[in-house]
Write a protein that binds this DNA or RNA. Structure first.
Lengths: 213, 213, 213, 213
DNA sequence: TATGAATGAGCCTTCATTCAT
DNA sequence: AATGAATGAAGGCTCATTCAT
């Protein structure tokens, strides 16, 4: 009575691993259900017991890819750090995971990013989730007296832009791990807390432009 | 009946350009023969006068992509520089070409890399060729007294690893052109020549691990 | 181990009812074994204990559909009416059953006709059976002195054509129950007995053409 | 320079005939592209040179089915009969075609109706076209002084309802050709012209209800 | 007895490839 | 030399059917 439905979950995991095998073996482009089936040792039609469509399968692949980061966001939100430390943790810990994945196998990292790009909805969901949690963080901070003069949405958008390079995996690829350091991230967060607390909306927007460009 | 080969060659060039047009127009994924034919202003079936298969066409695309680098390797090998200078030139000049291509149009650069990833054999041929020329270089150097205590294969593998980031175009994409400098490349080559000449195999391997990791 | 056959029969009935449920619920096209199984409250694979194939199941559906009519044919043949009354009963009683089914639920009627069209073999069997019983009737009549100058096959074919509209369920759908009356049927049978008894083959065929067209 | 595009049109006709062959051979349900291809003596993939999708093919089948009727509508609209005669011709001539098709092969008639039902869009287009031409007819009649007190749309809808049984092929199937006569159709049209010319909207609507029900 | 697991044939469609002209 | 006609293999997906349990 414990397990959900025979071994559907086991089959799913097996298939996610099969995708991983295929991706490692020959990149992420043009992976067919037959290939995945072969890697999983089952018939193509049997895949459909576990995933309704190819898209669903690759959404799950993307989801697995994001799982660790989602866990971090939940954990950080539920913790009782100060608003500033929360925000640092919120971004830094996910960034560290990203760097780790990237260092472990850069080519694989790129392949998964490509899968993400092909399954845009999965990514969009993650991005939305990130915005949601960040909203929670910012709202807490606002209750604690920070960010006076800004709306919640303004703050969320602003922070996302200022920390863009630590959020977007493409940036890892483009800028490299050497230039992207947690200490810098931390300094940006400090700037956000220090600089935006008493500022009015207008000057803040100027500052933002400078930092982003 | 005068120069049938010339016509064929002209058609090939035309088609390579057609691929380039398509790649620029809409990325590298899923390019069909019909698209290429349309861009070249000919019928799909006519392509087969110039290339036996789609794979052959894209191998030629990859070959064109590598042509400059192959020429460099040949040139350098045939030159009469010192072993050390040869090796610097061997890697640095190809790296400079890569950087140029990348800076000219990073997106296009990445598209071609993707085409390469999809036509692995074309790349494999180039990699083998690179190893071949490097072997010649190393053999010359060994005859001149360098790299005592190593086998030819050991040295080739070792050098490839130490200079990995200057050989692999993925690294350009990942690390960026700012951190990858010819002077550093040169210093690595010097280290190879200085540090590995009298060393025994075992300690060398340790050294390698440190550098690579 | 007592009466395994009974259980099988029960299951068959249950499945025929399940088909009926599905047909009523959403028409007759594209019924899948899974749907039938769901309607019967069993697993798809379990269906195969009761019917060897999907075709066998739908043959049974058709058979059930024809069962009453087959019983009538048997009954009438075994009865000791006059040849003329037998023939009237042979056609009229089946026609009345048809009308009843049609009036009860015209849409359902049509759905079952569609199922019949999709399982042509089941229908063919029934048609053959009808021809068989009709042959018996005609043979009896011939022994009693009717239909001189005709062969058995000629008579069977001729009668089938003259009464076509009372045999074919499509006609109910097309002509409607208002125009098709048992009294007319009776008059046609009388005509057959009266008109064809002494006629020669040739003129008869002309008569047939007029009536059918 | 004359023919449109090689023999695309010939291929289309061939395929429409192939569909006809299949429909005659085994009804209209579940016709696959492979079957059609086999009946046309070509490979399934080759069908796609002539029709972009299966739906397009069956839309064309439906269109062919309606072609004669569309021609009639055009012809009648372009003729210079009186408004009353035009309307009679508009409905009667199409009705006669329907009856002819139906009498020629009732089962085939039903099969094509089913194909129509499965390709609703093709039918919808025909229905819209019918409404369009009827609008033209009614507008002409209105200019000639008929149907005072009604809007164009009201009249079109009203006429369609009153002549429903002569428009809808299902009615042929259900009511039969014996009860549906051109003379009755004519009398209905006369009623429309006589009865609706001076009436006001409200009483007219009541009349309509009686006739339809 | 009855189920879930698993397969293979078939569906529509695309596309590289061949061939007659 | 170059084209349009035509095919076959493959892709995602569904479903009747089999089989071990």
């Amino acid at each position: 009575m414990a397990r959900p439905q025979t071994d559907i979950d086991a089959g799913r995991l097996q298939l996610l691993e099969a995708v991983d095998i295929v991706v490692r073996a020959r990149g992420s482009a043009d992976i067919s259900m037959s290939e995945v089936a072969a890697a999983a040792g089952m018939s193509p039609s049997n895949i459909y017991r576990f995933f309704e469509t190819k898209e669903a399968l690759f959404d799950a692949v993307a989801e697995k890819w994001f799982a660790a980061k989602i866990a971090i966001m939940e954990e950080v939100c539920a913790s009782d750090m100060s608003p500033r430390d929360k925000m640092v943790a919120f971004f830094a810990r996910r960034f560290e995971v990203m760097v780790q994945q990237y260092d472990a196998d850069p080519a694989l990292f790129r392949s998964y990013m490509e899968i993400g790009a092909q399954n845009y909805e999965a990514i969009a969901g993650y991005v939305d989730l990130g915005d949601h949690y960040l909203s929670v963080l910012v709202a807490d901070a606002m209750e604690a007296g920070y960010f006076k003069g800004f709306t919640l949405d303004e703050m969320v958008s602003l922070i996302n832009q200022m920390l863009f390079v630590y959020i977007n995996p493409d940036m890892l690829t483009m800028i490299g791990t050497a230039k992207l350091k947690v200490e810098k991230l931390e300094r940006i967060v400090d700037t956000i807390f220090a600089g935006l607390t008493k500022a009015a909306a207008e000057p803040a927007r100027e500052a933002q432009m400078k930092i982003v460009s």
